[in-house]
Design a protein around this nucleic acid. Structure first.
Lengths: 221, 221
DNA sequence: ACTCCTTCTTGAACGTGTTCAATTCGAAGT
DNA sequence: ACTTCGAATTGAACACGTTCAAGAAGGAGT
């Protein structure tokens, strides 16, 4: 399964790039394992030598998208912006990156969400990838001015990531041209979330926010 | 496709009950279409005469679970309880009903969430089923004392249903014995949600709540 | 009884994801 | 040059979801 030769590594990378291209060009279903193997000039058996399943190849797509998201978003984050603006940037770049795969969307989320696969965003096996994704939101939180209240600062990135998952879900279902409705959702929700964060300072609100934070920490095990 | 004879109706129902039993007893993957057909003493072709796909049969499971949820929850809702208590009942009965299918869970949600299928809880095609599910939460809202603020009363049921979807997602991933963690989540989250609803009356909070309600209404198209 | 006509049923066939025993490749050791 | 051995490759084979042309069942009209 792991590549230990240069030749193996080359074949592996060729398979990944071929698969991702076909996913983009002809969609998930038409991109059969045989089609990927043929397009990469290898046998289907070879594809399975490197990837345990077709889902595993989709997993490669996720990893690729996540890296692209990072490299696109990070340079746009400037210290001193308020949280709403920063959030907008991170969410919008996320949608930008996923754009070419929208038709793919249905399968996208269906595969991602299976608790079985390593692909699952919530599963324990993808903890590393999830942490990396959350760190993007941590960066946004750290750069934001004014700084979010200390009481929630540590947990906020994870919460924002959950919001991002929600936006992604919305995007998958968004059939409007160019997924314009998702863009509108982001533009409206980002400042709202920012305001909610500020609101959490209020004495009356603070108590319940602490309860919520406590609940979330408990949930994490 | 639709059954118009008594004979057809009998075959259809036999297939549904056989499929649901097999799903429960041997899980999703082992329950092949051939296995269902054989167990029901019909040919595979016959199964496809009544159900467009295996997913379609899973859809029958959802419908069955939803009805069971209703008949289990409604008699337990008593007027005058506070929203937290009522919410606990609805959420817990929901988990009760799904219990026997937890191993099934992975596929459960993966299939449900595909925007393609009529099964999808968010898709337009299952609007009727969704409305019926939401009406259970509407019932809880109507019976609760004190009554939630007028400003959000109409939209609250839908919001609570979203929360329920979140709990379900958590449940699917919950590997603790008897899904005990999900029960704990419900017991803690229900009163919190109830408190949040009360909080929405506060003058400072009210404004942002109105924005949120506005946003949600906009999202609904 | 016979003819229609719709409903329902069948089983073979197709394409798919996946597995696996067998084979080839290529570098390291001699 | 030859051998060895793990890495890499192959293509046939399997089970599954799904399709479909063909036919059987069963009732309504005559």
């Amino acid at each position: 399964m792991p590549t230990s030769t240069a030749r193996g590594e080359a074949t592996r990378e060729l398979l990944v790039s071929t698969a991702l291209r076909l996913f983009r060009e002809i969609g998930y279903e038409k991109t059969t394992m045989r089609a990927i193997a043929t397009a990469a000039n290898v046998s289907t058996g070879s594809a399975y030598y490197y990837f345990a399943s077709k889902d595993d190849l989709v997993h490669e797509l996720y990893r690729s998208l996540q890296e692209e998201h990072r490299t696109l978003a990070l340079p746009l984050l400037r210290e001193g912006q308020n949280l709403g603006e920063l959030l907008k940037i991170v969410l919008n770049t996320g949608i930008d990156v996923m754009g070419p795969y929208h038709d793919f969307g249905s399968n996208f989320i269906g595969i991602a969400i299976k608790p079985s696969a390593t692909t699952s965003p919530f599963g324990s096996e993808s903890a590393v990838a999830r942490a990396r994704a959350i760190s993007l939101f941590r960066q946004a939180v750290l750069m934001s001015r004014p700084q979010p209240p200390l009481a929630i600062r540590d947990d906020l990135p994870e919460l924002l990531w959950y919001a991002y998952m929600g936006v992604t879900l919305f995007w998958v279902y968004d059939a409007s041209p160019g997924q314009a409705r998702t863009r509108r959702l982001i533009d409206q929700a980002a400042p709202l979330i920012s305001k909610l964060v500020i609101l959490s300072r209020l004495p009356v609100v603070r108590k319940i926010v602490e309860d919520i934070v406590q609940l979330i920490r408990g949930i994490r095990q």
